[in-house]
Design a protein around this nucleic acid. Structure first.
Lengths: 158, 158
DNA sequence: CTGATCGCCGATCAAAAAGGTCGCACTCAC
DNA sequence: GTGAGTGCGACCTTTTTGATCGGCGATCAG
């Protein structure tokens, strides 16, 4: 339940990797290609390629063709949120369809729907949470995170 | 993305309905059967039945067979959290498999996984959010729901 | 110019999950 | 005891996801 898809996982891993190569060591900053990432994380090459293409099309990363080509972050890691990445890969995120559907005919339960309001609150909180965390946060020097950090997260949503 | 399944939706709606029949008007408290709920919300009867069966097996509701049979909440609505319901219907909730997998062999990326820690934090936050909201919270006196009620909804959980 | 190396795009296929349906088994009212 | 009204469990169909293949265009080194 609420599980991320493989594509989303791969996308996040790739972005984290690209970011750390780009920012990690100033002297060795370089462009990174799909094959390198795929081998590093044992991800099927073609699938990762497709994910990166999608991210490129959505303006999250920039691609460079030819030999010595590869990918770069389109903007600073600090300004790429998890929510943006997930939406780029898997479309608009919402706990239920009825919060962004164009045709209202979709939901037969809508007229008497009793869970719409409470769920909307949940959705907002999750979205806010995902939107408050960036790619930069993923690479930061936070090696270990304990259960107690929930408190921190709670503060975020309010 | 992060969308709830139909079964989860149906389950939550049904619980809300059962709860309001059970607690709403003390004089008219009664047992409620699957058919009634299915018709009220235009849900496929058999599917809703299966969801309720699952909830019964997980101890969220109690079933009563025979004519005049139906379902009752197994405990007070105040003590049934959204997280419990979702987990009962769709299995353990986790943003990625690797947080509750028995066999560590599943995740090939695990050794070099760089997004594990940050995602764990996200997951904890979401879990806590879902676990802090109960069925009782869902039945509160919000009869009609407009788009503007987002503000109201936000207030509900506090 | 030419070849090697890359990203780009579309089509295809298999596996898994979700959604929905069917017949059987139990229970209670009469 | 009987049958209508239940819950119950196995089953099938559709959709989504994950993964793979083949060909194309761009770019750079030599």
């Amino acid at each position: 339940m609420l599980k991320l898809s493989k594509k989303a996982d791969y996308g996040l891993m790739a972005l984290q990797y690209i970011a750390s190569v780009q920012y990690g060591d100033v002297a060795r900053a370089r462009i990174v290609n799909t094959k390198e990432i795929a081998e590093e994380y044992h991800i099927p090459l073609e699938l990762l390629a497709k994910v990166l293409q999608t991210l490129a099309k959505q303006g999250i990363v920039e691609s460079q063709n030819g030999p010595k080509g590869g990918y770069l972050l389109a903007r600073h890691a600090k300004h790429i949120t998890i929510a943006q990445v997930l939406e780029a890969i898997e479309g608009p995120l919402g706990i239920a369809d009825c919060y962004h559907d164009k045709d209202s005919s979709a939901c037969l339960q809508r007229e008497h729907c009793n869970i719409r309001t409470p769920l909307l609150k949940v959705q907002s909180s999750i979205y806010q949470l995902l939107n408050s965390m960036t790619v930069e946060d993923m690479m930061g020097g936070t090696p270990l995170i304990t259960v107690q950090s929930i408190t921190t997260a709670e503060g975020v949503a309010r």
